[in-house]
Design a protein around this nucleic acid. Structure first.
Lengths: 214, 214, 214, 214
DNA sequence: CATGAATGAGAATTCATTCAT
DNA sequence: AATGAATGAATTCTCATTCAT
């Protein structure tokens, strides 16, 4: 993950890279504790064990740091969307789906403070909101593609169905990750995978796919 | 919707009630534009066409105002959760479900700036987060109750299934309301209702329920 | 003299006007003591007996305050330029010229900290520099007009001659006002008036105009 | 021009001298763009293509660098003042005067950012202001000497007349050099020389000295 | 000699809240 | 009941200077 404005214009040596990394990780921690707008630069540098002035060597301001984090998350989200496999009716298909959901969960788990703040930065016309829409789009588009591969077509409107599925995955993961509901990772993933798999193949199969482990 | 701290202890005449109402509505507008922590008292009083000093005649501070808004939303959310009807397999059952989703949508549409700000107030240990969890709980509990009424049982784990459904409804509505995806109210509601209805009755019915209008 | 950005958008009552005036006068004092860039907002508000926050009620920042001062000076400079009388060869003409120089001196005396900073704010492309050029232009233009009224023409190139005269007046006044040379007001004014008057009428008169008082 | 504090105590090799020279020239450029207090060490080292740390190898701080520049200018100004020739009524006298003004112009042209910054350092009691007064004094004293050589005495008060002349020369040159007025070097110098020469010899001559070339 | 990194004191700015009218 | 003015604590940001390599 690369630095913000000021850092982008300089060549960073080993020490510089390390400091940059520390600042980015510290920001995630502080955003988690206090939210984006509640986070003070001061909190971040303390968490990163560095000084106030150093912060501004790497980022123009808090938003610049946030941008750097967001663009990192965005990249990984895009890769993840790309890697959504074809969804097969078989047990193997179920397992692949569940495994993919697991990777989504883990990414979300690490970056949820950033993702959360992202949603909160209410700037209709900013390109931050635009970026968010693009990420969402990548997930739904890829899911639409996978749904279209299924015969017979499980739904009449794959576009909206995909949006609904992504909504479900995203928010349920969010609730779990921020502990707003007391559900553990495996239980959630089993259930999500089951609901999705059943929903997509209920019309063509008699029996349920392998149920959740617990 | 009632006033905050200072206002609570006073009897409000007609003029006072009007000012209070203007402040609350202004706050929603400003929270929409700038988020909770980005909203300055100054913005709110300007939007409400009143003065700085007047604000503190009605609210102890910004959080007090926010509490007033949240408790209004919370009450309405609870009423709405309560009103979720038994879900029947019939065409009538579908219509009732869709109608209920419509009421959810409209409530969300008006208050989304408040709901959004809710997460902005990140402080894990505040009772604001607690309140959010309670609202979520009410929805899932009520939905679990309705799912349990269905025979044969459509899912093996009604608790997690309900969580997934609520997640889907909430987030898809959010995406639509804040225009992060270009879908209109009716199209979204038709599709959500269909997905939920099919999901709950697919096992016991041969044919799809009435499809979306468009 | 009117206020800066923030103050311009509000109606000021008596108390507000008084505070604004105090801030502007305080700024002149502080600019004199420490120069423009050396002046801290803190110094200014202390001199004005008000608080830090109050400053920003009237001005967006130091430059905004400076702009307000400059535009005040500019207006008075323009009026002064306008009031340069026709220059007559007579004793009365000499007296009128000297009186006008006296008004220039007094204006400069009060505002020299502002004028000085103005010159220092080296911003080739800013409109501040532009404004300075305009003021200079007004003086030279008016002087050219007055020189052209004289017969026979005392100089072959009135444009550059006027520039030279204005340069002399401005800088000599500056040296005197900031005490870089030990010359008092009356002595300087007598001499300047004499030099100018002789320069313009030497060709047509035999005798010197009434000499300086000392 | 010699280096500042730290550099003074060291013997500089070829590379060192080159770096020192680059820093001094860079400072002039940056002072021109941003003024003295607006100039950051960072700007200067970037302009000089060197690093932050290197700056402090040659100068103790920004003021030290400035002192080095000022003392260079001061020396050259003193030499220039010394070199003001006796002013003769003849065509040759006019040419010598104009040539001297040309040297003043060129010196001013190169160092005007330094001269300008000089006033930016406002602190009345600093010896920097003292130095400025001394330079001014040298010019006026030398001019007084030259005026006293002229018979019959062209003015009754040579002291103030000299001050007025120096004021005119300095400020007109300044206006021209910083492009506040659109006049080119030769035109300005012709006119200045003419005005001075006529002023000093008008009483004893019938005809104008050779007019400006354009 | 040279450099990138780090530092922290100092200055600017914001904004919730109080107050006098 | 309403308001304009004032306040100052909290925060952001800048930049001269030092340091380790």
């Amino acid at each position: 993950m690369s630095g913000g404005g000021p850092a982008r214009s300089r060549e960073l040596r080993k020490q510089g890279k390390e400091t940059l990394r520390r600042l980015l990780e510290a920001a995630i921690v502080v955003f988690d504790e206090r939210g984006y707008s509640g986070a003070r630069i001061d909190d971040i540098v303390k968490e990163a064990n560095t000084s106030h002035g150093t912060f501004y060597l790497y980022f123009a301001n808090k938003e610049d740091l946030f941008q750097a984090l967001v663009s990192g998350v965005t990249d990984q989200m895009h890769d993840l969307a790309e890697s959504l496999p074809s969804i097969k009716a078989s047990k193997e298909g179920f397992d692949e789906l569940r495994e993919w959901l697991g990777r989504f969960y883990d990414l979300y788990d690490h970056y949820h403070p950033v993702i959360r703040a992202w949603t909160d930065i209410n700037t209709q016309n900013s390109d931050m909101a635009r970026t968010g829409a693009v990420v969402l789009r990548r997930f739904t588009d890829q899911l639409v593609r996978r749904v279209r591969e299924i015969h017979p077509p499980p739904v009449s409107d794959p576009e909206t169905a995909a949006l609904a599925m992504v909504s479900m995955i995203e928010r349920a993961t969010f609730y779990a990750v921020v502990r707003l509901v007391p559900v553990d990772r495996d239980a959630l993933l089993d259930n999500l995978a089951t609901i999705l798999h059943v929903g997509l193949f209920a019309g063509s199969r008699r029996r349920r796919p392998p149920g959740p482990r617990r």
